[in-house]
Amino acid sequence: MTTTPIKFYQVGSFAVGNRLLSEEDRSIQSDPNRTNALTSGHRACQGCGEALGARYALDAAMRACNDQVIAVNATGCLEVFSTPYPESSWRIPWLHSLFGNAPAVATGVAAAMKAKGRTDVRVVGQGGDGATVDIGFGALSGMFERNDDVLYICYDNEAYMNTGVQRSGATPPAARTATTQAVGSAPGNVFGQGKNLPRIAMAHEIPYVATASVADLRDLEAKVTKAMSFRGARYIHVLVPCPLGWGSASCDTIKIARLATQSGLFPVFEAESGEVTSSTPIRKKVDVEEYLKLQLRYAHLFSPTRNDAVINHLQEMADKNIRRYNLLNQSSES
């Protein structure tokens, strides 16, 4: 999706704010009085993409509905680092029940609100990729299928990070995790189908599905805002690099997310009622290698010897996304 193009500005629509923009053209995060749904003092690792993504998304959700948001969180890093007794980093009503039931719990909250006639209060369910594509998959699908009035946000860091970086259904091929070690004849994760949850969500024909990343705040905010304009089940899949699990420098979190989108490995698009309605064109195309190189989980692709076969395979995946979502050569930014 493209945000409103803002002409004549050196930083156009990519930076967080810019004093030259009118207030309404600035991102929500640029507001010194932003709500900080997730505030300081949380225990996420240095440079945690999930902490960033969660604040981005929930602040946007709050803005969209006059702060009337209740969040339901699955077990995982986000839950653990935000609410270890005796301190909580949340500034919104927030509920954690279990690892695999966040979508259903969110449905329950939404049902309660509906029963009480408080339809002004909106419910956001959220969890990591494990909670979403694996253990909570059934509950999520049920929530989708019933079209419950819940916005579910998956913070995808491509593994079970909270338990120490084990493979999930969203772990990409070749990536090293604690349960897909870089040993043997096919080191790292298998080349399988993976679980492409955005597409699975689309198959439910729910009103709104989108992907986003922490590298494009404007896009993320616009999508959350748009999602909040619908009633019914909505799904946003946000790529959130994890320095710990990916073996990347803490300062590179956003950069890596950007390379994921600019290589085509992580396509950014949105869909309504099962149909892709737009995709965010790649601005500065890079080879997947640029992305892989910065992460130790792919180190085995480069040393001791370079594994061209696997790198090419990953490049093919990226190229396929580029074709499928038409990520290049769109008549852009018009």
Binding site: S30, L52, R55
Partner: peptide, 12 residues
């Protein structure tokens, strides 16, 4: 004053 630093800090 692009606000990037202000926006991108995961720790607010």
């Amino acid at each position: 004053e692009c606000d990037n630093c202000f926006g991108v800090c995961p720790d607010n």
